[in-house]
Design a protein around this nucleic acid. Sequence first.
RNA 1: GGGCUCGUGGUCUAGUGGUUAUGACGGCGCACUUACACUGCGCAGGCCGCCGGUUCAAUUCCGGCCGAGCCCACCA
Length: 814
Amino acid sequence: MADSASPASPQQQPQQPPQQAPSGPLPDNRWVITKEAEIFSNWEKAGIYAFDPGKRQRVWTIDTPPPYASGTWHMGGAVHYASIDIIARYRRMKGYAVNYMMGIDRNGLPIEVQTEKEYKIRMYDTDRKHFLKLCRELLDKYESEILRVCKRLGCSNNSLSAEGVYRTDSPEYRAATQATFIDMWNKGYVFEDERPNNWCTDCGTTIADAEIDYKDVPSKLLHLKFAIKGAGGEHLVVATTRPEMLFACACVLVNPEDARYRKYHNKKLIVPIFDKEVPIIAHPEAAMNFGSGAVMICSYGDYTDVRLFRDLKLAPTKAITPDGKMTAAAGAYQGLRVNKARLQIAEDLEKAGHVVKIEQISHRTPVCWRSKTPIEFVTMPEYYLTQKDVVPQLREVADKLRFHPAQAKQILLDWLTSVSIDWPISRRRYYGTELPIWYCDKCKQVALPEPGKYYQPWVDDCPLKDCPKCGGKTFTGEKRTFDTWFDSSISELVVSGYLHNSGLFERSFPASVRPQGKDIVRTWLHYTLLRAYLLFKRPAFEHVWISGHVVDEKGEKMSKSVGNVVKPEPMLDRYGADALRLFASSEALLGSDLRFSEERLAGAAKFVQKLYNVSRFISTFPQAGKPKKLSPADAWILGLLDKVVEDADAGYAEMDFFVPGNRIKNFTWDVFASHYLELVKGRAYNRDGRFSAEEQESAHYALHQCLRTILKLLAPISPFVTEHVWLALYSEGGRSLHLEAFPEKLGLKADDAITAKLAEVNSLAWKAKKDAAKSMKDPLSELVIPQELELLSADLAAMHNALKVRTGAPAASI
RNA sequence: GGGCUCGUGGUCUAGUGGUUAUGACGGCGCACUUACACUGCGCAGGCCGCCGGUUCAAUUCCGGCCGAGCCCACCA
């Protein structure tokens, strides 16, 4: 019984506690982090987070980003997933059936690159089946490390066991990817074309615009003399950073307004070294103030070249092979790698006297975001998904989404503005979902299987017996795979039950929320919206939650080369998941970068400990039902608590945890613990019997009511310590705190004036004793309190051991 | 060049059209006050980036400038 251990005197036996509850006081005098793992494994055993949509319950579907399993997490990953978990826990307490799958992204370039590095092999020199096996082993290793951190963080996914996690490379997932492809093919959104594309010579594949990064590269801008045909010795100067492209030059542009060159319009130039004739064309693309004002257009040196070849209907010359070497058209330079050829030809041009001047410039160069190799523009047949034509519709979709924070929408709109080509979705790689396509050997027609199964055309026989077009009996399977984003951009469909649970799918699509980092708006978010639009003409989700990055203490990006990377596990071991999650919530507004600071994390851990101590103190008092009349101090603190409930609820609903994190922390520490607990101690103990039994019970009720509410409010952010205290003090039959409803307000007034005055009076009293070198226990001869605190005078007298209390201008006398 | 965010004590940060502008960390000085030294109290420290405007009143609203960070575009 609580009472036997309670210092309360026997005549103040409380009424029956409101529920059958286990009783305090808490036995341990401090909170130890190792309890977290124990609590998590109890949750796992009891399966309390299992997703069970029931019949009527509203479903809240979280489209958790599947992290890529090609490495271990730094602090950013841990904070990101802990924050998403807060969304899940809050919604569960709000009465939703929360569908919160964990996913692992396992397809595509990153793991292939990692596998090549790990085993020191080249993918193209390795047997495909063997290579896939090596990839899979590595993926399994990274995946298990990521899932271990998730558990350590307290993530309440449906299940983190092997069965509860979806993987983008599983046969089921890949079947879904292929089914959407077949569907979109049938709807006419997929086509094959031979277009100049971003080509990574290192990865040996086409890549999408979204997979391009830019890097500033110092380069030489060569000013070259081109002889003008039939103009005696006259020449025109053309500036270029890519002289190795000279032989693929199709024309030279000058600005129509450029007076210097007006007389040369429609004349011909002789390309140096290659003696090829090209026209001079007046075109506004040529900037008068850059270089010489004359620019050569080659197939293909950059994006402008690609566009102009198309616009001006020029005949391209293939300049570069898929492995990054010069083609036969380069004559003497054939077979040289691009960089080598550039140096060589620059030297030759100088020797031959074609170079007028060399400028050193910094050139922003597009590079492959995985291998960082400068990309080339190579023409290859690839499959494309329509995207350019639906940009206006995607803007409308963006308008229907609710962004958190609202300004994150602009990132998406900016990207939509720059979408200029359709999405090339085929990749010449191994570890990815295969394009489910066979070609009839006889008529070469594309044959697609029925959607629903996972197909591997490079090993499987074509499921069709006859070619639908010509009746041919034999087929050849496609060898290419999809862009990784083609898999991950249907995650919201897969978690909503697409293809395997149509009842659930009806209820949960569009998904409730897409949480993700701001860096993958142009890829994951954009592509997901595109896919959902093409397939269903609907937005993929209701809310989009965009988080910032975790940066180091100085605000700089964490990177291996700088050496400022912080790993989550040592921090979790030192400070615990509760502290890390509180830190993540209360340090930065949603959407802003979070500065990681171990010192501040330690501060969060102190709060967790403080909360435990507060709980331990309160646990020494018996639980009491609501008294007929609340004492004024109790009405005051419960009124403030109401406001905290309201603010925290609003913050959680907006998915901005900065608000609840700080409000709960500040209330608990700075008001509840510092002032209320001190104020109410005398009445709660009532050693000298100066308070009535009802007044004492009111204190007991308020203490426990505050603690119960604080525990519930903080449960989504710090699920472990709150659960521990809850189970020890308040749980009915061992029922988890995380199955409780989010707290409701009691309907009391929040009187901030009392708070401010109380802090002032307390400070005065403490300072008076301190100045007089008295102990805090020593009496005050008189305490003068403002009118606002008159109702608290008995509590204040007990708190400060004041012999006399009167109202007036606040003062404290020894 | 376009967009977004932001300039507040040494550092980081909250907030507000109106008396002495939050809090944390750090510094200094006290205190074992019956939950807590992973504590409590106190002190020092700020022309709230700069210049204008609106207003009786601006750190807050508006405009400009300077500076920082991120995203997008980009020139051969």
